[in-house]
Design a protein around this nucleic acid. Structure first.
Lengths: 204, 204
DNA sequence: GAGAGCATGTAAAGTGTTACATGATTCT
DNA sequence: AGAATCATGTAACACTTTACATGCTCTC
């Protein structure tokens, strides 16, 4: 019925009613959340979903303006969401600019390659910190049982943790390889096609 | 200088000169490749890069038409590519429709949730098969040493393998949780907001 | 009263997908 | 002769980001 963004909005609103602004904030730092959008995309989509009968809103006078709208699912929306959730999903083919860049690192010098991967490694560590913080918000351990509505939200955080840990391990492996090479352990030679052509001398 | 797609094209062409058609085929089943694009995006971008002086082409009369163009990097392109490759990279925030759907699975019945995750699990296994096939193409083991230009291409395949394995493990964990619940081990109750409201009876 | 944050919208530009369109060669 | 594949392009549409635009409220 709608675009993926539409279902993403239904997804957040299925938990608590929110304003467009609150959704925007929520999607800015999506620790454990799986979609992003700017408010310029969110507001029109909320209007579309309302017109399609999947959402309603109640106006209220809060701070900001007297015309704040707090959206929540209609019955139709509460049917459409789970129907979409387990419908056949086309294989995803995520793009990764990071891996695209790694493929071209052989054209740089070993120093530059190592610096780049090191920076990415640090990013992994930062992300893991964020995930741990996010997990702490599911405070009462007994609520984090599978049959709680929030179980699946928690499960997506687990997913992030698992994947990020795996990526970190990969980056450590890659750095090991690069450092070993830099120490000349394989005696290889990396020719940079850069203006200052850099040819590594064989180890002494 | 260019969009990410532009650098992706420079990246493939930095290995061997190719025609637009060949790049299109290459990007269709990107096992170990990290970007996709349709030919309708590729042809204009190749023209743009050529006009920008990063690519050249030589015409040749092969099958298909007498005006086939085989593109390769210019010196400027061979400088621009590594400069982009290790330049600061904004944090990536990949979207995952699959995880978005998982977050809404609590609105379905346990049966539907399990079937969905099971299907995704199978997809993981298929992908792992593809990765193993892709890795086999790097046949001579001694070529797969870090200082070979193809080392980084191989490393990206390793990345896919690592991540896919981690995702598979997560899905197995999730299925365990769901099955345990279905057997009533936690005695929980999952209320579907679906037309046929499904309330699980507590275990006997 | 000035600035930060709350709150909502529209416009324009860029990126990506699907569909339209054409023509040659190779295989059956 | 017809279908599949090679090969190249354009057009229309959908999605996303960035920028423009406005106005209120709360805090310092």
């Amino acid at each position: 019925v709608t675009s993926t963004l539409g279902y993403a909005l239904l997804g957040v609103l299925s938990r608590w009613p929110l304003t467009g602004y609150e959704i925007t904030q929520h999607m800015k730092a999506p620790i454990g959340y799986q979609w992003t959008a700017q408010h310029s995309q969110i507001y029109p989509e909320l209007a579309r979903l309302t017109k399609a009968g999947l959402l309603t809103y109640e106006k209220f006078a809060g701070r900001g303006s007297p015309d704040n709208k707090r959206y929540s699912l209609t019955d139709a929306g509460r049917v459409a969401l789970p129907d979409w959730a387990d419908s056949p999903l086309a294989p995803e083919m995520p793009r990764s600019e990071m891996l695209l860049r790694v493929r071209s690192l052989w054209l740089t010098s070993p120093e530059r390659a190592i610096a780049f991967v090191e920076a990415q490694r640090q990013r992994c560590l930062d992300r893991l910190d964020q995930i741990v913080i996010g997990r702490a918000e599911f405070a009462p351990d007994d609520l984090v049982s599978w049959d709680h509505p929030e179980f699946f939200a928690w499960a997506t955080l687990q997913h992030r943790f698992t994947v990020t840990t795996a990526v970190l391990a990969w980056r450590d492996w890659l750095l090991d390889q690069l450092h070993a090479q830099q120490r000349g352990e394989r005696g290889g030679m990396l020719i940079s096609n850069h203006p200052e052509v850099h040819v590594r001398a064989p180890p002494p």
